[in-house]
Structures are given as C-alpha cells and as structure tokens.
Amino acid sequence: MNFTSRSLDGIELITVDADRIDAAVAIQFKDRMREHMADASGRVVLDLHRVDFIDSSGLGAIVAVMKLMPQGAKLELAGLTPSVDKVFRMTRMDSIFTIHTDSESASASHA
C-alpha cells in the first residue's frame, strides 16, 4: 500500500495510491497509516480520489486510523469516488468524518 504525503496550506495531505482498500490490504493500510500518523498534529486529509472500491474491512481500517490519531489531530477525507462515497453514506460514516469534494476544497476549508 503506497501513499503520497505533502503539506498543503497547513494540513497534511495523504493520497492513497491504490484503486482498492479491501480485506487483502486493510491490515497493511492500517499499519502504514499508523506509522505515518505517529507525529501528526492538526488536520490530516486522506485523499481517496484514486480508490474505486472499499469494503467493510477497508472502512474498518479507516475508522481504526481515525481512532489512532494523536490527541489534537483530526482525520478528514477528500476525493471520494461515487462508489466509495456510497459506502460511507450507507454506513452513515459520512456523519463521523468531515468529507471534502477534493484536496483543494479541504485546504480552503477551516474545518
């Protein structure tokens, strides 16, 4: 599981470089994100614009990452494709996460 990370207007933007977050990669995703989040502070935006499919294991991994965030850090999401957005809406996780249309709108937001 590969990520691209960069700072954008005071937020840390992490782009997932994969087309799926499913049972086959969920543990690897969570472990890599845990390493990446160890020193996080403030807003962290997970850009999922390349992810076309997410299953319950992938959703659970993202929720686990949110719970592992250091105190004072907040995980937000951006760039959900229609199929991924549908999963978040069906499970009502869209009420748990701040979701932005894309990384640019996330950086413009002061959530």
Results as ranks from 00 to 15, higher is better:
Arg32Ser: 15
Ala73Ser: 10
His100Tyr: 13
Ser109Gly: 04
Val45Cys: 01
Leu68Gly: 15
His100Lys: 11
Leu77Val: 14
Val84Ala: 14
Asp31Ser: 15
Ala106Pro: 02
Phe29Leu: 10
Arg20Tyr: 10
Asp31Pro: 09
Val16Pro: 05
Phe97Lys: 01
Leu68Phe: 10
Gly79Lys: 04
Ile62Arg: 04
Asp47Trp: 00
Thr91Phe: 06
Val16Phe: 07
Met93Ser: 03
Leu59Met: 13
Ala108Val: 07
Ala111Glu: 12
Leu80Glu: 00
Thr15His: 04
Ala40Val: 14
Val87Glu: 11
Gly60Pro: 07
Asp102Arg: 03
Leu48Asp: 01
Leu59Glu: 04
Ala64Tyr: 07
Val44Ile: 07
Ile99Val: 15
Asp39Phe: 05
Glu104Arg: 15
Met1Ala: 08
Ser107Lys: 00
Arg50Gln: 11
Leu48Tyr: 04
Arg43Cys: 02
Met33Trp: 02
Arg89Gly: 08
Leu75Asp: 00
Gln71Met: 13
Ala111Phe: 05
Ser41Tyr: 09
Ser83Ile: 01
Ala73Lys: 09
Ser83Asp: 11
Glu12Met: 08
Ser105Tyr: 03
Asp55Phe: 12
Ala23Glu: 07
Lys30Gly: 06
Ala40Met: 14
Arg50Asp: 09
Val84Cys: 14
Ser107Leu: 00
Thr91Lys: 08
Gln71Thr: 13
Asp22Cys: 11
Ser57Lys: 09
Ala40His: 13
Val45Met: 01
Glu12Phe: 05
Asp19Ser: 14
His36Lys: 13
Thr98Glu: 00
Ala61Arg: 00
Glu76Arg: 05
Met37Cys: 15
Ile27Asn: 03
Val65Cys: 12
Leu77Ala: 12
Arg32Tyr: 11
